[in-house]
Each structure stands twice: as structure tokens, then as C-alpha cells.
Design a protein around this nucleic acid. Structure first.
Lengths: 207, 207
DNA sequence: AAATTTGTCGTAATGACTTCA
DNA sequence: ATGAAGTCATTACGACAAATT
């Protein structure tokens, strides 16, 4: 019904459709005088004045892409050079670079994610393996302890004379385990603490 | 409007004006199997519109957001209802939802990434801890082995008469290690075999 | 009833604008 | 004035169901 809207809430269609718009809005357009029309190297110059192409040509995109490959940032100098090489408004070049950076970022994030994920998964497996290995070793160690006790007892039973100086009475007390052995054998049975649970809640993403 | 241009080269100003639209769309509910087909080509009929509101009002965004919170998908029914409630072109509602979904997805990805990252980091630490623990245990085990050897030799040296039946000559042969010890001590250093790659199927979220 | 057309929806990619720093 | 982030819209494409032949 009412087509009257505050000016700051409307977008000028001149960007899209300069031809008809300029008639309805008497040359208020170009409120930003800095943006001036570049020469269009298209054959039909008149048409180029009237409208903006929606899509950049492959040629243009290729060059932009190549330039982006060299350097994601865009200095004014390069911008203007590109713009004139491509026959584009420098403004368009700037916008293209901004959008390209954003796209690059999210793509980057995506691949970083999957990379991290696979790394994470192998780590989980590895961790699990290590846990069982620790259990196994503790079991073996416990057995070895038992065996030592048995031998010690047997020796004490059989022969009362004992010249061996090294073996301590009960707990093993490893001789040069200073680096790693900050905990004694009483720590043999520790909690596995498998605190890696979240795995499949990814599936719920799209409820 | 005599501007004859190839349609694919320019932007159509179609379906921009919300006001006139909502009347054109007949209220048609119906979504029992999936979605009913509509005979109404929304928008294309009036492609001569000149301008659109640049931004949706807070009111409109709030309702859209709320609706999105309930359900990310948008059925025709809901779309039309929303559109007429908000005085928007159903097309706009659809577009809004599409973009919202995209936004939501990338935001979700971002937070999933950081979640995964912290989890990964703690796992790395944990893995490291387990590795040192394994080393420590192996060291202790080696010491125990040495001790056993010492005791055995001592026993053989000291007393030729030996009534103990269980202890074998060299390798420990643990008595009841059937559960865990399917591999002997020589197997302590075994290959990690991380055959685990799949990581990017999270991309398939939506198929 | 089966094949084809047509509409609509969803998604991805893209362009441009606005706002904020 | 520029970059980054957020917003809106358009195009292209694929999938799928309804309408048509």
C-alpha cells in the first residue's frame, strides 16, 4: 500500500537497474561521488552504462582468483590496477576480495575441522590402546612382584643365611627410577577416567 | 520499460515489494503427505518493482528468529503464515530461512571446532601422560625381571637342592595371566597400527 | 499406469550493502 | 578509508512430488 519508506531504509536499485531508477529518483544517485564509472571495455558501451552485470566473467574471476592466491589483502594500488585490467569498478574488486576472504575463511575452518577430527579420532584410539597397555603392564608387574615375594620367601624358608644386599623387604623400590617413578606400586590400580564421550551428537545438528 | 536486455545478465527486480504480494498468495494450507504444490507463481508477475526495504524490522526479525528456533525447516504452510503475519513476501521469508540456515551452520561449525579442539588438547595431554606411564611401568617391569633373575641365580648358586616346582628358567611365565597376558614380555614394544582415517563425514550432515 | 513436464524446496556460491571498529 | 562481520538477495543446480500427457 504505502510505498513511502524512509530513505535510509531503502536500497537504491540503481546498483542493479540504473536505467529506470535514475528516472524515478532525480539524480540523487551517486551520493558517493567517489565512485565513478569506469570505462567499460565491453563492445556496447551504452548498455554498460545502464546496468551492471550480475556475474563476473570467467576471465575476470580467473584473474581475481589468481590475484587472491598471491595475496589475500588488497592494497589500493593493486585494487585499482586490477579494476582497470578487468574493466570493473574498484569498488567491485574490493567487494569481491572481501567476500572471497570470508569464503576462504569458512572453507579453511571446515578443512581445519576435518583435519582436527581425524587427528582426534586416531588419538582416541591411541589413548585407548595405551590404557589397555598400562593395564597389561600393571598386571605383569603385579605378577612379577608376586614372583619375587615367592622367591624371597622360598629363600628364607630354605636357607636362613642371606648375603644379598639389594632386595628390600617388601615394596620393590626401583633403583634408578627417579625420572618416572614418582608414584609407587600402590598406584598400580588407578582410575581409567575415560572422559571422552561426545561422539555422535553431531548427528543431531539438523533437527 | 524498453530496456531490452538478456535476462541472465541482469538482476531482476522482481518480488521486491512485500505489500502487494501477500494478497496475491492464496491461503492454502495442506501439508499432509509432504508439501502441496502451489499453482501460484509468486513474484514473477510483478517484476517491475523499484525498490525494496533494505532491512527487516526488529519485529520481523524477532518473529522469524523465534520461528527458526522452533524449526529450521520451513514448510510452505508456515512460510505463508509467517509472510502474512509479517507483511513480507513469502519469497523473502524463504530466503531469510535459507540464509539463516547457512549462518547457523557456520556458527555451529565454529563452536563444534572449538569444542573439539579443547577435547583434542586434553586428549593429547592424557596420551602423553599414558606414554610416560607406560615407559615407567616397563622400566619397573624390567627391574623386577632383573630382580627375579638375581634371586633365581642366587638360589641356584646357594642351594643345589631345589624343591620349588613353579618357577621356570628364564622368561617369567606368569601363572594366571590368561586374561591379559596373551603376549609375553617380548611383545611389550608392539606396533601402534593406527588404521583409522575417516574424519570428514560430518560434511554429510544433511543428506 | 508410466513417462514427462513443471514447481517448489533446499543448498551452495556469489554479489552487494550496512555496520562497526 | 579499509577490513571484518552480518544481512539480503540472486543464480544455478539437484531432488522430489504434483500435474500433465
Amino acid at each position: 500500500m504505502n510505498h513511502q519508506v524512509a530513505d535510509d531504509e531503502m536500497v537504491l536499485i540503481s546498483q542493479y537497474y540504473p536505467g529506470i531508477y535514475t528516472q524515478l529518483v532525480p539524480q540523487q544517485g551517486e551520493s558517493k561521488p567517489r565512485r565513478r564509472r569506469k570505462k567499460n571495455k565491453e563492445g556496447s558501451g551504452s548498455r554498460a552504462m545502464l546496468m551492471r552485470k550480475r556475474k563476473l566473467s570467467d576471465e575476470q574471476v580467473n584473474l581475481l582468483e589468481q590475484s587472491f592466491g598471491n595475496e589475500h589483502k588488497l592494497e589500493s594500488e593493486r585494487k585499482d590496477k586490477l579494476a582497470s585490467e578487468l574493466g570493473l569498478d574498484p569498488r567491485q574488486v574490493a567487494v569481491w576480495f572481501q567476500n572471497r576472504r570470508a569464503r576462504w575463511k569458512s572453507k579453511k575452518l571446515e578443512e581445519e575441522y576435518s583435519k582436527l577430527k581425524s587427528e582426534h579420532d586416531t588419538n582416541v584410539v591411541e589413548k585407548c590402546r595405551l590404557e589397555t597397555e598400562v593395564l597389561k603392564l600393571k598386571e605383569q608387574l603385579s605378577e612379577a612382584e608376586k614372583e619375587i615375594q615367592r622367591l624371597l620367601l622360598e629363600r628364607c624358608d630354605g636357607v636362613s643365611s642371606n648375603t644379598s644386599p639389594s632386595a628390600s623387604s617388601f615394596s620393590m623400590e626401583p633403583p634408578f627410577l627417579g625420572e618416572f617413578g614418582m608414584e609407587g606400586l600402590d598406584n598400580v590400580f588407578y582410575a581409567p577416567d575415560n572422559n571422552y564421550v561426545q561422539g555422535l551428537d553431531w548427528v543431531n545438528l539438523y533437527i
